[in-house]
Amino acid sequence: MAYAVTRSLGRRYIRVYTADFLPGSMSSASRYSSGSFLYPSPFSQQSGFVETLIEKLKLHCCNVLIPVGEETYLIAKHKQRFLQHTGMAIPDYDQILAAHNKDQWGALAAQLNIRCPAVFAIDDIRQGRVADLPFPLLIKPKQGGGGWGIVQVDSPRELEALLGRQEHWGRPWDRFFVQEKIQGQTHCVAMLFRQGEYRARVGYRQLRSYPIKCGQATLRISVEHRGAEESLQRLLEALNWHGVCQADFIIENRSGAAYLIDVNPRFWGSLAQGIACGVDFPYMVYKIAARGDVPPQDSFRTGVITRWIGGDMAAFVPSLKEAGSKIAFLREYFWPHRRASHYDDLSISDPLPFMYWMADALYRSVKKRGGKSRSHESLEGIWE
C-alpha cells in the first residue's frame, strides 16, 4: 500500500518521505522516496509514535500526511493535534471504529437495507441461545486484517470442538465472532469521499488471493457491480465519511445479490488496482489534504488485470494443492490467457523495492520454520 502511494506521488514529482516502525520497508528503497525514517510502534508505543511523527513532520516541513495501515486509526485518534502541523484526509476516530468493528457495522447496514451475512456472538452459541446455525460458518476476528484468525467451520461437531478450546489463535474468544458464509465470489469496492460527499470509486473481482480462501487479492480484474457500489456509497454517506474506504462483498451464486462482509476504513491491499484503472486514489487524497477538494470521478476502466507478485508467490503451493486440475492451474499461473497489465510490487524502472520484499520474505520464512511465526501486531489491532 505504502509503495503504491509512494510511486503514485513520486511519478508526479511530489517529494515523498517514507516511514515505518520496522527497518527495510519496500518504500524506503524506492527511487521515488526522498528520504525515510523509523518511528516507534503505533501499536505498542503509541505516545512515542505520535511525538516522533509530529517532530518529523515539522523537521521535513511536510504539508500532507498520508497514513496507509492501521496506524491511520491512531493518527485519527489524535487528528486535531496532527492537523496543527500538516494536512490530512482521513475520517474521525469514531467513524473509523464504526466501520472497523466487524461485528458492529452490521446494525447500521441493516438500517440502510444493505444485505449482510448473519452474525452470532460466541457466548450466545456457547450458552445454547442460538438454534439452527446456517453452516458453513466463519470464525473471524472482530478487528484486524490480512486474513489472520479466520477459520471455516462446516458442522456442529466441528464448531463444538473448536469452541471447547480455551483460546483461538492464541487470543481470547472475546476477540472473535461467528459469521454466516455466503456462497459466491468475492467482489471489492473502494471509494473516496470528502466530508460525506462521493468523489471516486473502483470495483474489482478477486481471481486469486493470499491466504487463498480469505485473504488479500493477488490477481484481480476491474468490473462494475452497481449493487455493491450503491451499498457502500449509502454506508459511507450515512457515516459522513472523509477519505478512502474499501469493502468486500460476496456476490451470491444463486441470486447475484451483493452481501457486505468486511469494511476497511483506510487504504487497502489492492490499492494499485484503482490506480491502474485510472482512479489515482493517493493523488486525489493528496489534493484533498493539500488543496481542499477534487472533482468527482464517475467512472473507472473495466477489464484491467493487476497482480501482486509477492502474494501470488506466497500462495502458489497452497493454491496448487487446492486446484482441481493441477495442469490447468499451472498453465493459468505461468501462461495466463489474460496477462496482468500492472503489478503492485514490481517495476522495471524501480526494482529495489521488490528486492527488499524478497529479502524480507526469506527472513520471515526462516523465522517461521524456527517456530517463531505469529500474526503481526499491525494486523491484530485492538482499537476502542
Rank of each mutant, 00 (worst) to 15 (best):
Glu384Asn: 13
Ala118Thr: 01
Asp360Lys: 14
Pro172Asp: 07
Cys61Ser: 15
Val317Lys: 13
Ala238Tyr: 04
Trp169Pro: 00
Gln297Ala: 03
Pro172His: 04
Leu112Gln: 06
Ile382Thr: 12
Leu362Cys: 13
Gly292Asp: 09
Lys58Ser: 15
Val64Ile: 04
Pro141Ser: 05
Gln152Phe: 03
Gln216Asn: 14
Pro117Cys: 01
Leu232His: 05
Ser44Ala: 12
Asp293Arg: 06
Ser28Leu: 04
Thr86Arg: 11
Thr186Glu: 12
Val189Phe: 02
Ala89Met: 09
Asp92Glu: 15
Pro353Thr: 07
Glu384Asp: 14
Leu108Gly: 01
Lys321His: 13
Tyr210Gln: 13
Val153Leu: 03
Gly303Asp: 06
Gly144Val: 07
Ser41Met: 03
Leu133Ala: 03
Asp280Asn: 15
His168Ile: 03
Val50Glu: 11
Ala315Arg: 10
Gly292Lys: 09
Asp94Lys: 12
Leu22Gln: 13
Asp92Tyr: 13
His187Phe: 15
Ala110Glu: 13
Phe329His: 11
Tyr73Thr: 03
Ala328Gly: 02
Val244Gln: 07
Asp123Gln: 11
Ser36Val: 06
Arg165Ala: 12
Ala247Val: 07
His60Gln: 13
Thr186Ser: 12
Tyr17Lys: 14
Leu352Gly: 00
Gln246Trp: 08
Gly184Met: 08
Ser365Asn: 15
Ile348Lys: 13
Pro296Val: 05
Arg307Ala: 06
Ser341Ile: 11
Phe37Asp: 10
Gln297Gly: 01
Met355His: 08
Arg331Pro: 00
Glu230Thr: 06
Glu51Arg: 15
